[in-house]
């Protein structure tokens, strides 16, 4: 349920970006998520439906892109993709590894437009 706070942050960032661009409507939001975070995309979608109501992002479609995890073994320096927190180095079996990628959570981009009824601002 910590997705509630995350969704509030998403909406805050999206609204700021859209108003800076003078856009009246947000159509699409692309969120990048490392595959080892514990955030659940369907939960974010659920909260987004509630929180975005009445905002410029009300009808925006959320798109999630997963970022593969990448780690370097602390023992033999092999590079590999840990697929869970229990993963060990496929070369030497050591559980000691440094995660280089896989716990990110950021907004990659948004797609915005003007509603049909808006003035002569254009894009």
């Amino acid at each position: 349920m910590h997705e509630y706070a995350i969704t509030e942050n998403i909406l805050e960032i999206v609204q700021a970006e859209a108003s800076r661009a003078g856009a009246g409507r947000v159509d699409e939001i692309t969120v990048v998520m490392g595959e080892l975070t514990t955030f659940v995309d369907s939960s974010i979608e659920f909260y987004f439906g509630e929180l975005a109501r009445g905002t410029a992002a009300e009808n925006a479609v959320l798109k999630f892109q997963k970022l593969q995890a990448r780690a370097v073994c602390g023992n033999c320096e092999a590079q590999f993709r840990p697929q869970s927190a229990f993963f060990t180095c496929p070369d030497c079996g050591s559980p000691l590894y440094e995660l280089k990628q896989g716990q990110e959570l950021f907004i990659e981009s948004i797609e915005v437009s003007q509603p049909e009824t808006s003035g002569p601002k254009g894009e």
Partner: peptide, 13 residues
Amino acid sequence: MKIEVKKNILATN
């Protein structure tokens, strides 16, 4: 119009 955002969602925290 596409806007590149590239902002960490947990940045405030």
